[in-house]
């Protein structure tokens, strides 16, 4: 007896925009590799229902100064390269990174207070050291962000880098820098669909092309609000697929930053022995955070630990394989 299975596929009207990072010599840049994300016409990895033309990618965080608050495990894993952003970026590329997420952390008033000149120099060095596209983050302090991101955007003119973070308080300057130098911006809002939408609308009002925006919806780590951020991302994606054009950008998540803030990953001090091997636990914490976010629509995952990179990439490869293929 044959049972007729009803077709439960959704027909979505919306489509995620394709955003390209990096530009090769043909487009005025110097990148050996470029990355395109987005383009989905269905929820994550539902290959039977729609198109998923581009696989999610892994970005690796590189800082312009050796971080003094990073877990011992990370410091050990990266070794001396931590002291030189160019070497760090090259090493990350060798370990499988698909994007370098350069953080101009030294510009922070309490962590060096470097300025535009140093930012340019760092960007120049890192561009030289890697063939990958760049994401460039400011130190997260609005005035300094404006100072160094504008300089970085100019220095990287033609390279189609992503500038972050573009937040409600400083989006105008970052967007202006992107407009003037043909870059992409990362629009970051605190875990709220409507705020994400509003920021995208405001950025759009400044006439930045819609396909030059990435959404960072703000995420949590495993055990630290991950489920809440998961459902916010899910709602962003559902809104996009049902046709809300203000939310149809690819999603970027800072899984590494979040996971390594969690006690479970960061430290082994005073934790129960049942928690098991620290090194293994920490990497799995990051990988689990990342893979969970992958399942709810993350297109770019910014990671920290070298060993997390292959784990997450393996998960992506598996999820991108169509059943029966």
């Amino acid at each position: 007896m044959s049972v007729a299975m009803p077709n439960v596929n959704e027909t979505w009207t919306g489509k995620i925009l394709e955003v390209t990072l990096g530009a090769g010599p043909d487009k005025g840049g110097t990148r050996g590799k470029t990355v395109t994300v987005g383009g989905e016409t269905t929820l994550p990895f539902l290959h039977f229902e729609g198109e998923i033309p581009n696989k999610p990618v892994v970005a690796v965080e590189v800082r312009d100064r050796a971080p003094d608050d990073w877990s011992e495990l990370l410091v050990k894993a990266w070794g001396d390269s931590l002291k030189d952003p160019a070497a760090w970026a090259a090493k990350a590329e060798g370990l499988g990174a698909e994007i370098i997420a350069l953080s101009l952390d030294s510009a922070h008033p309490e962590r060096g207070n470097t300025g535009a000149k140093e930012a340019r120099e760092t960007v120049r060095q890192v561009l030289k050291a890697t063939s990958l596209p760049l994401i460039i983050y400011g130190p997260g302090q609005p005035d300094k962000d404006n100072e160094v991101l504008v300089a970085a955007a100019e220095e990287a003119a033609g390279e189609r880098v992503a500038l972050g973070n573009c937040e409600e308080k400083n989006y105008r300057t970052v967007v202006a820098a992107a407009l003037a130098n043909n870059q992409v911006v990362i629009a970051k809002t605190p875990i709220d669909v409507n705020l994400a939408k509003q920021l995208n609308v405001l950025i759009g009002d400044m006439r930045l092309d819609r396909d030059r925006i990435l959404i960072d919806p703000t995420t949590g780590a495993l055990g630290y609000g991950l489920e809440y951020t998961y459902s916010v991302m899910e709602r962003v994606r559902l809104a996009a697929l049902t046709g809300d054009s203000a939310l149809q950008q690819p999603l970027i998540v800072t899984a590494g930053y979040e996971a390594w803030r969690a006690k479970e990953a960061r430290t082994n001090d005073g934790v129960p022995t049942q928690w098991g091997d620290w090194a293994k636990r920490a990497v799995l914490w990051e990988a689990n955070t990342a893979v969970t976010l992958l399942e709810t629509g993350a297109d770019i995952l910014v990671l920290r630990h070298p060993e997390t990179i292959p784990l997450v990439k393996r998960a992506i490869a598996g999820l991108m394989t169509r059943a029966g293929a």
Binding site: N146, V150, E154, R172, T173, V175, A176, L179, A180
Partner: peptide, 12 residues
């Protein structure tokens, strides 16, 4: 133009 333009665009 770029330096001032950014300030004009971001409202400073």
């Amino acid at each position: 133009l770029r330096a001032w333009g950014i300030q004009l665009v971001d409202g400073r």
